[in-house]
Amino acid sequence: MSKVYILRLDLGNGTKIKDVQVWDLNADKQQKEQTFDCKILGSVDMKRLPLWVELPNEYVCYSASSTTTSYFRSKLLQKQYPDRGLVAEVLGESATSEYMLFYSEIIDVARPQIKTSKIDISIKRKLDNQLLQEETPRAQSAILSKDQSIDAIVAKKLLRRTQSTSRISKHVQMTDYKRKFVSTLSNCILSGLRLRGIPERQADFQQLYKMTYSTAEFAFRDELKEAKSPIYFEQVQEAVELILKLFTKS
């Protein structure tokens, strides 16, 4: 019989139990005891432990602290939860996580025992490594496919953005082209009507203006449609003069 561990349990919310003595009842000689800090993670059903969980060494817990005794009695010795176990993580500098499992064993109702064992998860680690090796090629393929898919999406978005920018630029160019033409045409018509002594208050002024405007616009329909070659002031003025001469016979 030998004391192998002294555990300090962190129960959460700032509560700690500092006297959990772990004894190996089957030890032939005394062992050097070790002290560990542990943190309670939660409870489990002892009848539903995963198949990969192994409990190689079983120890018995003792304590001189009434607080420790009360805690384990409230958690592991309740009739409504006969199969409850507590899982604790061993806190330390180990590269891999280690866990302890606490549970009750009632051989004598008057003297129930709290037992603990280190959880051996080596089988789980082997299974995880095998799964990782099998999944790595798939994951790489999926990542490659995903990257290609992302590249295609980005390329499509860039193309749509370029096309949209091109359409906007062309629309702005067309609008500016027509705006300049309308301004030039309007000034030429007003000047031509004033030169002919036709004031704005005259009855047929608006009709002459509209008809001249529509006719001149129709005359330059090809240029306005393409918006490539510039329409010079002299061209517009010449067309307006020809139209007004026809409409006013002057």
Results as ranks from 00 to 15, higher is better:
residue 139 A to R: 14
residue 78 Q to M: 06
residue 161 R to P: 00
residue 76 L to D: 01
residue 92 G to V: 11
residue 173 Q to L: 12
residue 121 I to D: 13
residue 185 L to I: 03
residue 138 R to F: 08
residue 128 D to P: 01
residue 112 P to N: 06
residue 162 T to K: 12
residue 139 A to C: 02
residue 138 R to S: 03
residue 68 T to E: 11
residue 152 A to M: 12
residue 147 D to A: 08
residue 123 I to M: 10
residue 170 K to Q: 15
residue 110 A to V: 04
residue 148 Q to E: 04
residue 137 P to W: 08
residue 171 H to F: 14
residue 77 L to W: 06
residue 148 Q to L: 03
residue 131 L to N: 14
residue 181 F to D: 02
residue 72 F to V: 04
residue 134 E to C: 04
residue 58 E to W: 01
residue 138 R to T: 08
residue 131 L to P: 00
residue 166 S to Q: 14
residue 83 D to H: 09
residue 147 D to C: 05
residue 167 R to G: 00
residue 87 V to D: 04
residue 97 S to P: 00
residue 130 Q to Y: 13
residue 81 Y to N: 08
residue 74 S to L: 01
residue 104 S to Y: 00
residue 139 A to P: 00
residue 112 P to S: 05
residue 99 Y to N: 08
residue 178 K to E: 05
residue 144 L to H: 11
residue 98 E to V: 04
residue 96 T to I: 08
residue 155 A to S: 15
residue 161 R to C: 07
residue 119 I to V: 15
residue 123 I to E: 14
residue 131 L to K: 14
residue 74 S to T: 10
residue 152 A to G: 10
residue 88 A to C: 15
residue 128 D to V: 13
residue 119 I to W: 03
residue 130 Q to I: 15
residue 183 S to I: 05
residue 145 S to G: 15
residue 111 R to N: 11
residue 184 T to N: 06
residue 175 T to Q: 12
residue 75 K to M: 15
residue 183 S to A: 14
residue 94 S to V: 05
residue 88 A to G: 07
residue 154 V to P: 00
residue 127 L to F: 10
residue 185 L to G: 02
residue 106 I to L: 06
residue 161 R to K: 15
residue 186 S to Q: 09
residue 153 I to M: 12
residue 155 A to W: 06
residue 80 Q to F: 05
residue 78 Q to V: 11
residue 86 L to M: 11
residue 74 S to H: 05
residue 98 E to R: 13
residue 141 S to F: 08
residue 168 I to P: 00
residue 64 A to G: 15
residue 69 T to R: 09
residue 126 K to W: 06
residue 165 T to S: 11
residue 90 V to G: 06
residue 99 Y to S: 09
residue 109 V to T: 07
residue 133 Q to K: 15
residue 185 L to T: 02
residue 95 A to M: 10
residue 173 Q to H: 15
residue 141 S to V: 05
residue 163 Q to R: 13
residue 182 V to S: 05
residue 165 T to R: 15
residue 145 S to P: 00
residue 80 Q to K: 13
residue 156 K to S: 12
residue 81 Y to V: 01
residue 153 I to F: 07
residue 72 F to L: 07
residue 64 A to I: 10
residue 142 A to D: 11
residue 123 I to Q: 12
residue 95 A to G: 07
residue 67 T to I: 09
residue 109 V to S: 09
residue 148 Q to I: 02
residue 150 I to V: 09
